[in-house]
Write a protein that binds this DNA or RNA. Sequence first.
DNA 1: CCGCCGCTGTCACAAAAGCGTCATCGAACC
DNA 2: GGTTCGATGACGCTTTTGTGACAGCGGCGG
Lengths: 232, 232
Amino acid sequence: MSKARLLLVEDDKVLAELLVWHFEREEYDVRWTTDGEEALMLAQEHVPDIVILDWMIEGISGLEVCRRLRRGAATANVPIIMLTARGEESDRVRGLETGADDYMTKPFSPRELIARIAAVLRRVRPALAGEVLRYADVEMDVVSHKVRRDGRAVPLGPTEYRLLRHFLEHPGRVFSRERLLDSVWPHDHDIELRTVDVHVRRLRKALNEGAKTDLIRTIRSAGYALDADGDY
Amino acid sequence: MSKARLLLVEDDKVLAELLVWHFEREEYDVRWTTDGEEALMLAQEHVPDIVILDWMIEGISGLEVCRRLRRGAATANVPIIMLTARGEESDRVRGLETGADDYMTKPFSPRELIARIAAVLRRVRPALAGEVLRYADVEMDVVSHKVRRDGRAVPLGPTEYRLLRHFLEHPGRVFSRERLLDSVWPHDHDIELRTVDVHVRRLRKALNEGAKTDLIRTIRSAGYALDADGDY
DNA sequence: CCGCCGCTGTCACAAAAGCGTCATCGAACC
DNA sequence: GGTTCGATGACGCTTTTGTGACAGCGGCGG
């Protein structure tokens, strides 16, 4: 599993360097900027797994950055932890309501921030926390790379594995072929959209071995989703 | 979509009642216990959408409850917010590492807790956090592309889906066929005005499956509108 | 170093599903 | 009662998805 990509937006250089040091010790792939606009650009060009965002930064405010990240389709679901010197309850509530996932008041301990980051990531990308992913009767052990359905081992190729993992990390959510190519395939070369269909088919075939119900729902002209709900 | 089910484990009765009052105002379906063992039983028998857990409770400790919830297959993914009087950093980190999703130190403001609950739920069950369009007994989950009426799944084609979505985004408003073609159809080629009629019919048919009342009102020589008011 | 084998990406074709149009019927309006 | 506008069912066509086959790549064991 690749490292989790973290974007830090903080204009206090001393604090930022301290945090970067801690983050790197935790094996995060860190990117750091002091500027709101630049943060948005960076997030656009390579979507991070989590954003640590100071409220008071150069250029546009942290709150505004948060709002804009939420508006962008690609970044709408990236978790955000806000940092701030403002300890007022109303500020905290406002931050959370704007779409932040968590909120820490300065001064805080890096260890606690690390712990909160881990808690948020565990929720958003369980695979990064080395847990077992489950959905309906499917289990994926991220550490041993084993997948079983209803207790029975399911043989998967590398791509099918990544595809299934992506679905398991976001059960129920619909993904367009584009988005799947973007998040499941290595970012380098251009691949035909329809290739996704083929891999979905292979995944289905492996997963449904033995007359099981299909867990992957096709949403016409929209994409695919993991879905055990038979009503559809 | 039904209300979010919340399990509160807190043995300070005064605080608990205050919180319950707040939770109910937020339309949560609240269950409250003071005891750790009982909490586990309750969680077993009816899996909650989120658990608010005091660290210091009767019987086994909150931390242990947290750990056991995480171990149970059914409850492994239920988000947990821990409450505690212990403000020590090491405690907070320990709580988060045990699998809590968030952590609040007493005293705290109910508003902030509410905001944190919303933040956590938004991530875990988008459907519970307002990414669902509703009108009367119709719900459209934009993330999973599912539509249900009165709890029953409604199968829709892409165009019907977009059409309904448009109506749900502007309930009660009347749209001319032109306007609908303009905002619901892809902007490329010219389409016969009457085609709208046909799609409205298909949408009605799917939506009214099983002798439901018609939710789409026809306004003669003007257009269509979403409208549950049967007085017309 | 060679050859086998598993995996991948792409294609062409088949099967669905959905779409737009029309002709016709029915209801509302004047 | 005539006229206008909307509802409806049928139908051929287009778009989208499913599927099987295949050739290329790359790793691995021999």
